[in-house]
C-alpha cells in the first residue's frame, strides 16, 4: 500500500513529508521499544508507535525507516519534525490506538515483520 492509503485507513494527518505519500510500504512494526526497532533488518517498514520523542525519530533514521505513524494523537515537537524533515521521514498521526491502527492496516494488507 502507499502512504496515502495508510493515511486514509487510519484517518490520519500528515505532519511532514506530504511529497512522499505515493511511496509504497509493505511492512509494519508496532513498538514503543526503540531497541526492538533497532533489531529489524528490513528497510521498507512503517513504524507504528506511541513514543513521541526525539529518539523515535533518531531510531527511524538509524534503521533506515522512512515513515512513522504516531498513534493516539501523539503530537511530535517542532524539533522532532525538523529532524524528520532533515532525514526525509514522513510523519503521520492518527487518533486510533496502536492496536486498532495495526489491526486496520494488517487487514488491508500491510505485512508483519515477524
Amino acid at each position: 500500500m502507499t502512504l496515502r492509503d495508510v493515511v486514509q485507513i487510519v484517518d490520519g494527518t500528515v505532519l511532514c513529508g506530504d511529497d512522499n505519500l505515493g511511496r509504497e510500504v509493505h511492512l509494519g512494526f508496532a513498538s514503543d521499544l526503540m531497541s526492538d526497532v533497532l533489531t529489524l533488518l528490513a528497510d521498507d517498514i512503517l513504524l507504528i508507535t506511541g513514543l513521541s520523542n526525539n529518539q523515535a525519530i533518531r531510531t527511524a533514521e538509524m534503521s533506515d525507516i522512512l515513515q512513522i505513524l504516531f498513534v493516539r494523537n501523539k503530537r511530535p515537537t517542532k524539533t522532532m519534525l525538523d529532524l524528520a524533515k532533515e532525514h526525509g521521514i514522513t510523519i503521520i498521526t492518527t487518533p486510533y490506538s496502536m492496536f486498532r491502527s495495526s489491526g486496520l492496516l494488517f487487514s488491508k494488507g500491510l505485512q508483519p515483520v515477524y
Binding site: D32, L33, M34, S35, D36, L38, T39, L51, N53, Q55, A56, T59
Partner: peptide
C-alpha cells in the same frame, strides 16, 4: 521513557 532500557 526514551524507549530504551529493555536490556537489549
Amino acid at each position: 521513557e526514551m524507549g530504551f532500557g529493555a536490556g537489549m
